[in-house]
Design a protein around this nucleic acid. Structure first.
Lengths: 239, 239
DNA sequence: TTACATGATATGTTATACATAATACAAACT
DNA sequence: AGTTTGTATTATGTATAACATATCATGTAA
């Protein structure tokens, strides 16, 4: 669209758009909190001078992003929005572009490296014990197997996230992990063999650093553990 | 809900729920990609044996999470979903609970500590130069000011995120920062004074570590720089 | 008091009609 | 020819009315 003097593009919001804005403004300006009820569909329709259809569609949007919850008789209730839920849906559709996929792949590396401080601050003896069992189980499997075991990875790293004490982080990771696997398997063909070219820091070693309480060793070990992945994203290969 | 033998929880899905599932299944099983068109409302309605209204509501949901885009004459087109957009909307409503808020506060610390490796791998001389200018400008301000300057913080740390080369991370941070500020100002009352009790690593020092290319010094410096925040979340104070 | 019946209420669903915007194509003009 | 302008078509957007269904509150009988 060309810009000509004196001709501003008219904002072409649909009725539903306007109603959606009105309702969110209503929520914000009245400082409503989770659990509060908002007017019923017909009341909104009358107050705003639009049909119930339009109000319903606007409410559907708000319901979709999770900020309201509707019950048959009760009406609409403000609810605790859960941004991870939609994130999950989006991921399932396989519509996310490769560039974003790469970003997310990196995000996992970032989060895992970044949570080390919280991990050390919050780990308990019970956590360590549980993690020990996980590593024990891992080593009971075929010791020479070069097969990249998803289950073991999830168990070990998932536990780390749990130990960080940040539930949102943990849930985020649970969604990101499949993405991570997908990229690993489909986009980075030679990753499996590549993984074992270098000397690799094992889960056992990481566990030991954690036991010792040596944060810096753990951090460096984790970096080495993830190094194949880091190398891949940093090579800037076609993705 | 407890699990008892022979008693499966009855799936009480609404019609719209089912239709939504049908449509997403349709997209997935046909391996449709961004830009592909999907059947029109009436076609879905006829094929699924439901009213157009129900189809519309299901489509509204998909439109809301951003996986389809509808044009008046053209019909529905699959589009690149943008999960950050909804995240933004949710944050604006101020409905997120304190526990999640705290998680997000931590998430910022996690991401910033975790991106150091990518930062050092991808920083360019131009980046360093730009960052230098930012620090110069910061120091031109009142040098003794204890006022926590949002603008400066955004400029400096935002630049770091940009340098990491991960656009998704950068966008995420742009949304998280207000949250971070909000928590900092409203939930952690004594944070401002607390911030200066300890010896503090300045932006200038961080910049120098970055210039030297000393990753470990930078990492430790950044940890010190963020230490007041870390201390706060680790104290487990009432939030 | 408990259990059941009943009605009121608000969302869920259907059906129909019309409004609006985008497209394609024909008609008109230079 | 090539460009603009009108017009029919089409699919989404909006309005209205009616009925279905689940839930709550009240009242009534055991």
């Amino acid at each position: 669209m060309k810009n000509r003097v004196g001709l501003k593009p008219i904002t072409n919001l649909s009725l539903v758009d306007k109603v959606e804005i009105s309702i969110t403004e209503y929520i914000k300006s009245n400082k409503l909190e989770v659990g509060d009820t908002i007017p019923k569909e017909m009341e909104f329709a009358e107050s705003l001078g639009v049909s119930r259809t339009v109000v319903r569609e606007a409410l559907t949007r708000l319901r979709t992003i999770g900020i309201i919850d509707s019950k048959k008789h009760k009406g609409m209730v403000l609810s605790q929005p859960d941004f991870i839920e939609n994130f999950e849906k989006i991921m399932e559709t396989n519509l996310v572009g490769d560039d974003t996929l790469k970003d997310i792949f990196e995000l996992r590396l970032i989060m895992e490296m970044g949570m080390v401080d919280l991990l050390f601050a919050r780990k308990t003896d019970e956590d360590i014990e549980e993690l020990s069992k996980i590593v024990d189980d891992m080593e009971k499997g075929k010791p020479e197997s070069h097969i990249f075991s998803l289950k073991n990875e999830v168990a070990f790293h998932g536990k780390l996230y749990e130990m960080s004490g940040n539930k949102t982080l943990h849930r985020l990771q649970n969604i990101l992990l499949p993405v991570f696997q997908y990229v690993h398997n489909h986009k980075l063909d030679d990753a499996k063999t590549y993984m074992y070219k270098k000397k690799f820091v094992t889960h056992r070693e990481l566990l030991n650093y954690l036991k010792e309480g040596n944060k810096e060793k753990f951090r460096k070990g984790l970096a080495r553990h993830l190094e194949p992945h880091f190398d891949r994203v940093l090579k800037d290969v076609e993705f």
